[in-house]
Design a protein around this nucleic acid. Structure first.
Lengths: 177, 177
DNA sequence: ATTTGATATATCTGTTTGATATATTAGCAC
DNA sequence: GTGCTAATATATCAAACAGATATATCAAAT
C-alpha cells in the first residue's frame, strides 16, 4: 500500500504561499513548524524529485553564476492534493517524549534521577515557551491577516500546552520529594 | 555513528520488571506507554535479536506443544545500559501533530475546514482524556507502590496537557468563528 | 588573503512504521 | 464435534524518516 508521505503535504503547504528551494523549505520547517512537525534533507530532496515526477510541483533553475539553485512551484494538481489532505478528517497526532519514557521507568534508579530529568525538561520547556510568547506578541496585532491568524493559533497551542507542562513539573517534583 | 535505538530502552525498561515475549512487549507498549512512545513488531523483534547478541538480554524457549514462544530476561549488562540511559540528562521530546500542520496551512481552504479539523481533534482528546482519568483514579490509591507512582506521574502529564488542549480548542474555534 | 559561517545541492546508513505472511490456540455458535 | 472468529505469536518487507556526511559556492569578517 502506498502510504501517504506527510512531508509532501508540508512541502505543498509551504509552496502554496511562495516558490522555494529545497534549502528554503528546510529553513521554513526548522522555524515555527518544528514545534509540531520535523523534516530533514534526507526526505525533503527525494520528495521534491517524486512530486515533480507526479506533476504536483514544477522546477525552475534559478542558478546564479556557479551556485546551483532550483526553485519549486506548486501546480494546480499540487493544490488539489493539498486541499484534499486538508479536508480529510483523519489526522495522526503523536507525542514522542523521551522524558516521560524515562520517568515511566524511573523506579529502576534513585528518585533524584527522575527529579533531575524533570528539571532538564522544565528548562527546555521554559526556553521554548519564551520563544513562542515572542511569536504571539508579534502576531497578535495582525490577526486580520489570515495567514497570521492560523500561525497564531498554532503558537497559542504551544503556549497553552507548555504552560500546562510547567505546572505539571512543579506537581511532579513535589510528589517525588 | 551508531545512533542510540530508543526501542531498546523501552524493551529493557519493560524487562526490568518481568520476563516477556516479543508479543507481550508489543501489548505493553500499546497500553499506557503508547501515549508518549510507540513500538511495532518491525522494530521489536530485530531489537530483541540484536540485544541478545550484545548480551543485554537472554532468551528462554517456553513453547508449549505447537505454539512457539520465546521469553526474554534482562541481564546485568542490560540493567547497566538501562540505568545509564536513565541517568543521561539529554532527552528528545517531540510533538508530531498533523492537526496543527493542517491548521497551519488552513488558509488554503475555507475556515469551516479548519474548524472541523479542530472538532475532530477535540473528540480524539476527549476520548483519550477519559481513559487517562480512569487510570489515574485506580492508581491514586496506591502511590506508595513506587511503580504506581511513576505510572501515575506520566498519566497526570497526559491529563494536564489534554485538559489544556481542550481549553485551546474552545478558544481556537471562537477565533475562527 | 584567509577563514568562518551561511547557502545549496544530494546521498548514505540506520531506525521506525505499517502492512503483510504464516501458523497455533481458545472460545463460541451451531 | 465441527467450523468460524479472534487472539496469540512469530517474523519479514517496503517505504518513510532521521541524522550525519559529502561537496561546493558565496558573503563577510579578520
Amino acid at each position: 500500500m502506498a502510504r501517504e508521505r506527510k512531508i509532501d503535504m508540508v512541502i505543498l503547504g509551504l509552496l502554496s504561499h511562495e516558490d522555494l528551494t529545497g534549502y528554503d523549505i528546510k529553513k521554513r520547517i526548522d522555524g515555527a513548524i518544528s514545534f509540531f512537525w520535523k523534516g530533514s534533507f534526507g526526505n525533503i530532496y527525494p520528495a521534491l524529485k517524486d512530486m515533480e515526477d507526479q506533476e504536483l510541483i514544477t522546477k525552475k533553475d534559478i542558478s546564479s553564476s556557479g551556485r546551483e539553485k532550483i526553485a519549486y512551484h506548486i501546480t494546480r494538481r499540487g493544490k488539489k492534493v493539498l486541499g484534499d489532505w486538508l479536508k480529510d478528517e483523519q489526522a495522526s497526532n503523536e507525542l514522542r517524549y523521551e522524558t516521560l519514557l524515562k520517568l515511566f521507568f524511573g523506579g529502576v534508579q534513585d528518585k533524584k534521577v527522575s527529579v533531575r530529568n524533570i528539571e532538564v525538561f522544565e528548562e527546555q520547556v521554559r526556553g521554548d515557551l519564551e520563544l513562542l510568547k515572542e511569536y504571539a506578541k508579534t502576531l497578535k496585532n495582525s490577526l486580520d491577516d489570515e495567514d497570521h491568524l492560523y500561525f497564531y493559533l498554532t503558537v497559542t497551542f504551544g503556549i497553552d500546552s507548555y504552560e500546562a507542562y510547567l505546572k505539571w513539573c512543579a506537581k511532579a517534583k513535589k510528589l517525588l520529594a
